[in-house]
Simulated scan of single mutants.
Amino acid sequence: MKISLNVLLAGALLLGCNKSKNDESKDGSDKKLLIGATMLSMQNEFIVNVADEMEAKAKELNVELITVDAERSALKQVEQVESFIAQGVDAIIMNPCEVEASSPAVKLAMDAKIPIINVNSETSAKPTAFVGSDDTESARIAMKYIAEKLGGKGNILMMHGFMGQAAQLKRDNGAKEILKANPGLKLFAEQTGEWDRAKAMSLTENWIQSYGNQINAIFAQNDEMGMGAVKALEAAGLKNKVLVVSVDAIPDALQAVKKGSLDATVFQNAKEQGSKAIETAVKAAKKEAFDKEVLIPFQLVTKENVGEFLK
């Protein structure tokens, strides 16, 4: 009888220890913040760079981050945000697929009282905060460089990004603003390459067949498309006659600028966008003070200063 009493006492002690440990782990002070992030497309190198930096910053701040790929579908993106809300995340970061079609996701998060931060691209619905750069400015910088190099005269082709996305709309506006100020520059043709290298290469091949030696410059709204244009021009033996300028300064593009095959790119800071998005989301989730708009400047990259941007 005595032995069984000791056994019972030991069991009770063990239970007590376990209980206090469980209670401790349930304590809110121990809880990691959970952030859900939905990205436009993980097939896009610049977006991957932003996502990588978000991951690194989340780790540094001891935050749990769930990143999903919207695969360029605004509908899928809205569903992903719904899923984050159902999971009870503390904040959401969205890299919007489209200005209008991704907007319902912002409303859903706001209605659920979950802070939502738009990174790199915008929606018409106003989120908790925006972290990115002024896309209009990137196109102004690129087109001013083209105008200067061509002496204000020449035939330009413009390659658009994914139609309806904020970057596409704003880069279109910025480029056309400079074209308007330089009447000697003619916009020969414009079409979407959907931010995609292979599609841009194919589009450039078509343009070469249609316009050939009349082309003086191509402005591609991102580097993926700029690299596709360069490849097609090189294959046709026209690269030395046609200026190509694009936006983002992804590693491939920086190497091409160094080599001289891409004339210029406009540096968009993926690292800053990614880290600031996480920092803003964490502050908003903790109800600390945060900036409602974080704008990171663009910089022109040419052969002269490319060394500063190469790792």
Score class of each variant (00 low, 15 high):
2 K>S: 15
4 S>P: 08
12 A>T: 09
14 L>E: 03
23 D>Y: 02
24 E>S: 03
26 K>F: 03
32 K>V: 03
38 T>P: 05
48 V>C: 03
49 N>I: 01
53 E>M: 09
53 E>H: 15
60 E>L: 07
63 V>N: 06
63 V>T: 12
64 E>Y: 08
65 L>K: 09
66 I>H: 14
67 T>H: 08
69 D>Q: 04
78 V>H: 15
80 Q>P: 09
81 V>R: 09
82 E>T: 14
92 I>D: 10
96 P>N: 13
97 C>M: 08
103 S>I: 02
103 S>H: 03
104 P>Q: 13
106 V>F: 07
106 V>H: 12
111 D>R: 15
111 D>W: 07
115 P>H: 09
115 P>F: 06
117 I>P: 06
120 N>S: 14
121 S>V: 11
123 T>M: 05
124 S>W: 02
124 S>H: 11
126 K>T: 13
128 T>H: 11
128 T>S: 13
134 D>Y: 10
135 D>S: 11
137 E>G: 00
141 I>P: 06
142 A>Y: 02
143 M>V: 05
144 K>I: 04
145 Y>T: 08
145 Y>K: 12
148 E>F: 01
157 L>M: 14
162 F>W: 12
164 G>T: 11
172 D>F: 10
174 G>E: 02
178 I>Q: 04
180 K>N: 07
184 G>C: 01
185 L>A: 13
185 L>E: 06
187 L>P: 02
189 A>K: 11
193 G>T: 08
194 E>M: 14
195 W>F: 15
201 M>I: 06
207 W>V: 14
209 Q>N: 13
211 Y>D: 10
214 Q>E: 14
217 A>K: 02
223 D>H: 02
225 M>H: 10
228 G>S: 05
234 E>Q: 12
235 A>N: 12
236 A>E: 08
239 K>F: 00
242 V>P: 01
242 V>I: 08
245 V>T: 07
246 S>W: 02
250 I>S: 00
251 P>H: 02
251 P>Y: 01
251 P>E: 02
258 K>V: 00
265 T>Q: 04
270 A>C: 07
271 K>W: 07
280 T>P: 04
281 A>Q: 05
283 K>A: 10
285 A>T: 06
288 E>R: 06
289 A>R: 05
295 L>R: 14
298 F>E: 12
301 V>N: 01
301 V>A: 03
302 T>R: 00
304 E>N: 02
